[in-house]
Design a protein around this nucleic acid. Structure first.
Length: 903
RNA sequence: GCUGGGGUGGCGAAAUAGGUAGACGCACAGGACUUAAAAUCCUGUGAGACCGAAAGGUCUCAUGCGGGUUCGAGUCCCGCCCUCAGCACCA
């Protein structure tokens, strides 16, 4: 029967393609990926007629395989890109490869492969994976960070920064990861751990190129106000903490006897109001004063200094606070406020990297100084008193709050707030200090003793010194066939053809810089390059970039909050200062998606080496584990194949834990559309996403249900003979369906505008359920029924496009009878009609004293009085209020009635 | 320790301005179709108690815990507890 009607359908609609009765994901997906590619559906150019939208996702590192985190990231971006296109925007949606970096070199070391081949192979494989997901990128704009036409401009930017004094070289202790054999920036060594492998970081002396990000510290802070509305506050907070602005004052303490050239020692303090309580000046072991006087110290002092220096260099156990250590150097300095002579100590708790590397020690009002003074029996003098309550714990702990100054000469009696301002001013007037601001943020060290990065375009000439390369000589290309040992020295240093060059200034033989740039340089400006990806002369044409940028929506993980996201903000400000862009902030809105996690199974074996006693986990792949669940579906026990009892948890997907899911496999089994729908539906985007196989099956079921319905109604829906709408009569059922349709359009639109992706899919499922509830068969549908069905189904299909574009395209093509696709057909996201979305009958809950007691049905335009009357007429309510005193009646218009009674 | 998120069924989660808590999905259970299975469709599903032969109905308790404001609190206020994340001698 069904088969027959299908043939009849084909007979009458000869122009239609044959529609499969069943949904075959792979077939549909291959078909539409081909059409999109042939029709250049997602290729865009500047169009002044349309509003633009720049949808950007963080570009992947080509590690070899896509993982579910990528799928989630790109599904979100693609949904947004599709939605905006259907809303009439000119959408730029590009992708590329962050293809410089260490794994390529590691592969070279371990397996002897060429980093270039390894990288290109990985890109080819991963590009295919992305294409199989059917993501709507403009592939013409694909960029490759490792290719000379791209890194040429890393070098170009470096030269620009060098010219502006923003790039400089200095000898420094760098962060060094012994495991990766790599230098790390401060951001990459945050928390004392390597950002890539998690190992503890050590220190190493090296000459390094730095970028003066600290010049922009204040702007990086202040301009946050421009993006506050669109960025997650946790990201901004982390950046704020990282920049670590701190207001205080410098104070110079004169030495009683000059040490060589050094006559005074400058300290930084936020609590100048406590200066009368200083009992010592404490300096870092690396302080210049220590170096200058070193030979004159007693043996004991020398030994202690050496010990502290050594300790600092060692792997620091970042969890344990180190015990304070120090020694009186024998030198003296004078407190400029009190005139008191103070000893100068060396202390391991003073860091050379922060402030001036020297502090005044005020034990009564600083916890660290207190601890130090206690240990070494230094005097503790109270100079701040608490205005509110008596603080009687002096001698037991430090009082660190603001208060009233005491024992402070002419400043006695002032509040801390007043004194902080006035004393810094006083110091300035008298030439021994000034108000000051310090930052935790350090300059960005970009030198890497690595091969697989952009060479730093600098030449060392015996006569001219450090000479920047000429712009016309760019790119300075990476040589091929380089021996990579991974021993921590620059591989390029051993390549004579590369190193030996002529000086760009005098032409004499010279040597090239052999370090390469941190790969975070590449990602600082890549999304500007997308706008003008093949420009041979400039990183991009400012005019083109002016149309597309700033980025309207950026999507990615929040793990780059103080790396990529702070570097790229800095880079943008530099680009602004050299006239390439005309705004302060490159990204208007940022969305950070949560991790993809999965169930893990493991046994814990005790690890005697680990003092924390956590033990070591041995993981078992989930498909080898026998899991027992109770009636409710909870796991009650898990056993390995050989019967060992296992523990379970939910953890980030990774190979070593065996809980990873291969996107290719998901696409193969369930299809790209279902995979994408599930990743978006299962949880809000910012939450963790727990992967479970049955969930994705639910997504397939949903798509199949849509398909089946369209298949059944295809003939009727695609029949283009239309009636005039005002002549159509709608049954109550049809009106109800239309209402649901318009309510759904409203919900989906609002949800997408507020970047929710799980709730609109739920709304579409509800609409589909309503369509299925509409119990009319195609053969006996009235014009009103048909209209309602057509409206519901067409809206559903178009609204499905952002989440499951292949299915949407296919079903739409079946209805419209051509294969041009939604966008070429000029399809727009449906608009809702407020009137139709309104219910004509509403259910009103009736409460007695705030408790739900009954419900009544009222017409949608019922007045408060009507609702009240209905409530009192209700039999159940009558019973409740029978004989009771009615205190008051609250009517929330069109929502609820609450009757307050007494007795 | 400091800072910022977050605690809602068996699970993932919904809930525009305080106004029917648990939409949607998963899982589970029962039923229909089938020779059978899969698929599909239908029904049920927060906990407890009660009325009724049944269909169905009623009540109480439920959004981490304890208070408060309010006619009414998942939502607002105060105090705790737990949890995740970031930072950590920053002077």
């Amino acid at each position: 029967m069904l088969k027959l009607s299908h043939e009849v359908n084909l007979f009458f609609h000869w122009r239609l393609m044959i529609m499969d009765e069943k949904y075959f994901a792979k077939k549909v997906e291959q078909k539409w990926q081909k059409i999109w590619s042939e029709n250049k559906t997602f290729e865009v150019e500047i169009d002044s007629e349309k509003p633009k939208f720049y949808a950007l996702e963080m570009l992947p590192y080509p590690s070899g395989n896509l993982h579910m985190g990528h799928v989630r990231n790109y599904s979100i971006g693609d949904a947004l890109a599709w939605y905006k296109r259907l809303k009439g925007f000119n959408v730029l949606h590009p992708i590329g490869w962050d293809s410089f970096g260490q794994p390529a070199e590691d592969a070279a070391i371990k397996r002897g492969v060429n980093p270039l081949d390894w990288t290109e192979d990985n890109i080819n494989h991963m590009r295919n994976q992305l294409k199989r997901l059917g993501l709507s990128y403009d592939w013409r704009r694909e960029i490759f960070a490792h290719r000379p036409d791209y890194y040429k401009f890393d070098q170009w930017f470096f030269l620009k920064m060098y010219e502006k004094g923003l790039a400089y070289k200095k000898m420094t202790q760098v962060n060094w990861c012994p495991n990766c054999q790599a230098t790390l920036s401060n951001e990459q060594a945050s928390g004392g751990l390597c950002w890539r492998c998690g190992n503890l970081v050590t220190k190493k002396d090296l000459e390094q190129w730095f970028l003066r990000i600290t010049n922009y510290a204040d702007q990086l802070l202040e301009d946050m106000s421009e993006i506050e509305a669109g960025w997650p506050q946790k990201v901004l907070k982390r950046q704020r903490d990282w920049i670590g602005r701190s207001e205080g004052a410098y104070v110079d303490f004169k030495l009683t006897q000059p040490v060589g050239e050094i006559e005074k020692i400058r300290i930084f303090t936020t609590r100048i109001d406590t200066i009368f309580g200083a009992n010592a000046v404490v300096v870092a072991a690396e302080h210049p004063l220590i170096d200058a006087y070193f030979e004159c110290f007693t043996e004991e002092v020398k030994k202690t200094i050496e010990k502290i220096r050594l300790e600092k260099r060692k792997i620091t156990d970042y969890e344990a606070e180190q015990e304070k250590e120090g020694i009186d150097t024998g030198l003296k300095a004078i407190n400029p406020f009190s005139g008191e002579e103070l000893p100068i100590w060396v202390g391991n708790y003073v860091m050379m990297e922060y402030g001036t590397g020297a502090v005044m020690s005020v034990p009564a009002h600083d916890e660290r100084d207190f601890e130090f003074a206690k240990k070494y029996g230094l005097p503790i003098r109270q100079v701040i008193s608490s205005p509110h309550q008596s603080f009687d714990k002096f001698g037991q702990e430090a009082f660190t709050e603001y208060g009233i100054l005491i024992n402070s000469g002419e400043w006695t009696g002032k509040t801390s707030e007043e004194a902080i301002k006035e004393m810094a001013e006083y110091a300035r007037r008298n030439g021994f200090g000034e108000p000051a601001v310090t930052y935790r943020l350090r300059d960005w060290g970009i030198s890497r003793q690595r091969y697989w990065g952009a060479p730093i375009p600098i030449v060392y000439c015996d006569d001219c010194g450090i000479v920047p390369e000429k712009y016309e000589n760019l790119p300075i290309e990476l040589p091929k066939n380089v021996e990579i040992t991974g021993m921590g020295e620059s591989p390029l240093a051993k390549v004579a053809e590369f190193v030996n060059c002529s000086c760009p200034q005098c032409g004499k033989p010279a040597k090239r810089e052999t370090d390469t740039m941190d790969t975070f340089v590449d990602s600082c400006w890549y999304y500007f390059r997308y706008c003008d990806p093949h420009n041979p002369d400039l990183p991009f044409d400012p005019k083109i970039v002016h149309y597309w940028t700033p980025v309207d929506q950026y999507i990615g993980g929040d793990d780059h909050a103080v790396m990529h996201l702070i570097y790229t903000r800095f880079w943008t400000k530099v680009m602004r200062d050299i006239g390439l862009v005309n705004f302060n902030e490159p990204v208007k809105r940022l969305l950070t998606q949560g991790m993809v996690v999965g169930e893990t199974f493991f046994e814990v074996i005790p690890n005697p080496d680990d003092p924390s006693g956590k033990g070591k986990r041995i993981y078992y792949p989930p498909d080898t584990v026998q899991v027992e669940r109770d009636q409710k579906g909870r796991i009650i026990s898990a056993k390995s194949a050989d019967g060992k009892p296992l523990q379970w948890a939910i953890e980030r997907m990774s190979k070593s834990k065996g809980n990873g899911v291969d996107p290719d496999e998901m696409v193969e089994i369930y299809g790209a559309d279902a995979t994408r729908i599930f990743t978006l539906f299962a949880a809000p985007v910012e939450n963790e996403l727990v992967w479970n196989e049955t969930g994705i099956e639910g997504a397939v079921r949903f798509l199949q249900r849509v398909w089946r319905f369209v298949w059944k109604w295809q003939e009727k829906i695609s029949d283009s003979t239309t009636c005039e709408i005002d002549k159509i009569e709608f049954s109550a059922e049809a009106r109800k369906l239309r209402r649901k349709t318009h309510q759904t359009i409203k919900r989906v639109t609002e949800n997408l505008e507020s970047l929710q992706f799980n709730t609109p899919i739920a709304a579409l499922m509800e609409l589909l359920n309503a369509i299925y509830d509409f119990k009319v068969e195609p053969e006996n549908a009235s014009p009103g029924d048909l209209f309602a069905i057509r409206e519901a189904v067409t809206s559903l299909i178009v609204m499905l496009a952002p989440f499951a574009p292949h299915v949407a395209e296919e079903l739409y093509s079946q209805i419209v009878g051509n294969e041009k696709g939604l966008l070429a057909n000029g399809v727009r996201f449906p608009e809702y009609d407020e009137e139709l979305a309104k219910a004509d009958e509403i259910e009103i809950p009736i409460q007695i004293n705030g408790k739900l007691r009954s419900k009544v049905v009222a017409s949608a335009d019922a007045s408060d009085e009507d609702l009240k009357a209905l409530a009192f007429a209700d039999a159940k309510i009558k019973e409740y209020i029978n004989g009771k005193e009615i205190v008051k009646v609250i009517v929330v218009p069109k929502r609820l009635v609450n009757i307050v009674i007494k007795g």
